[in-house]
Design a protein around this nucleic acid. Structure first.
Length: 106
DNA sequence: TTAGTGACCATAA
DNA sequence: ATTATGGCCACTA
């Protein structure tokens, strides 16, 4: 299961669950909020290991440039794009989300 | 033990 | 605007 300390992953999931519909955040931002400013990679890792029964808005987490960090046009990429569009978050011409506009702060 | 990798990021040209 | 570079740290081989 979790290759990362379980408490860490659970903190990530709990924080992601707080992101309201129509807003987004980034890996680095979440790591910062959790008190580990340079651990962005571990936020991504925790999300990649989210068990199916944990229901959180993982699609609201993008990289620091407002882009989807999943492989371009991969299965997950399409899913994330669709979920974002479904809640009114529309990427710009470059396929990116404006973080200053949609970015979430607790 | 070392080297490579990754749903990352800040900074510098 | 874009690339390049160095840093980050847990995991794996």
């Amino acid at each position: 299961m979790s290759q990362l300390p379980l408490d860490w992953a659970e903190r990530v999931w709990a924080l992601v669950a707080l992101i309201p519909e129509g807003r987004v955040s980034s890996y680095g931002k979440l790591a910062q909020l959790l008190g580990f400013p340079r651990h962005a990679r571990h936020v991504g890792r925790a999300l990649s290991e989210t068990p199916p029964h944990i229901d959180i808005p993982w699609h609201r987490v993008l990289n620091g440039r407002g882009e989807c960090s999943l492989a371009f046009q991969s299965e997950g990429w399409y899913v994330q794009m669709a979920l974002l569009r479904a809640e009114g978050i529309l990427p710009d011409d470059q396929g990116r989300v404006n973080l200053t506009k949609y970015g979430w702060q607790p």
